[in-house]
Amino acid sequence: MSERFYLYDDTEETRTRFVSFMGESQRFDLAIITSSRYYGKKLVLDVLSNRFAIIGTDDLEEPGYLEHAYQISEEEAGELRSFLYEVI
Results as ranks from 00 to 15, higher is better:
1 M>Y: 13
2 S>R: 07
3 E>P: 09
4 R>C: 12
4 R>T: 15
4 R>K: 15
5 F>V: 15
6 Y>H: 15
6 Y>I: 14
7 L>E: 09
7 L>N: 10
9 D>L: 14
10 D>L: 12
11 T>F: 03
11 T>L: 09
11 T>W: 07
12 E>M: 04
13 E>M: 14
14 T>S: 13
14 T>D: 14
14 T>E: 14
15 R>P: 11
16 T>A: 04
16 T>F: 06
16 T>L: 01
16 T>Q: 11
18 F>T: 12
18 F>N: 11
19 V>R: 11
20 S>R: 14
21 F>E: 03
22 M>W: 11
23 G>C: 04
23 G>Y: 00
25 S>Y: 07
26 Q>P: 02
26 Q>V: 11
27 R>K: 15
27 R>F: 08
27 R>E: 15
29 D>V: 09
30 L>T: 10
30 L>A: 01
30 L>P: 12
31 A>N: 02
31 A>Y: 03
31 A>E: 10
31 A>T: 05
32 I>C: 02
32 I>M: 03
32 I>N: 05
33 I>L: 12
34 T>H: 13
34 T>E: 15
34 T>S: 15
34 T>I: 05
34 T>P: 14
35 S>K: 01
36 S>M: 13
36 S>H: 13
37 R>Y: 12
37 R>M: 08
38 Y>L: 03
38 Y>F: 12
39 Y>S: 15
40 G>A: 04
41 K>M: 00
41 K>E: 04
41 K>S: 00
42 K>Y: 01
43 L>C: 04
45 L>N: 09
46 D>C: 06
46 D>R: 00
47 V>Y: 00
50 N>L: 05
50 N>P: 01
53 A>F: 00
54 I>R: 04
54 I>V: 11
55 I>E: 04
56 G>H: 08
56 G>T: 04
56 G>V: 00
57 T>K: 12
57 T>F: 05
57 T>V: 13
59 D>S: 09
59 D>R: 08
59 D>E: 10
59 D>G: 05
60 L>R: 00
60 L>D: 01
61 E>V: 04
61 E>T: 07
62 E>F: 09
63 P>W: 01
63 P>R: 06
64 G>N: 03
65 Y>E: 05
65 Y>D: 02
65 Y>T: 00
66 L>Y: 05
66 L>A: 06
67 E>P: 01
67 E>F: 02
67 E>D: 05
68 H>T: 15
69 A>Q: 11
72 I>H: 08
73 S>Q: 01
74 E>M: 13
75 E>I: 07
75 E>Y: 08
76 E>Y: 02
78 G>E: 09
78 G>D: 03
78 G>Q: 01
78 G>M: 01
79 E>A: 03
80 L>F: 03
81 R>N: 09
82 S>K: 13
82 S>V: 14
83 F>D: 04
83 F>S: 06
83 F>M: 07
84 L>K: 03
85 Y>H: 13
85 Y>Q: 12
85 Y>I: 14
87 V>T: 10
87 V>E: 07
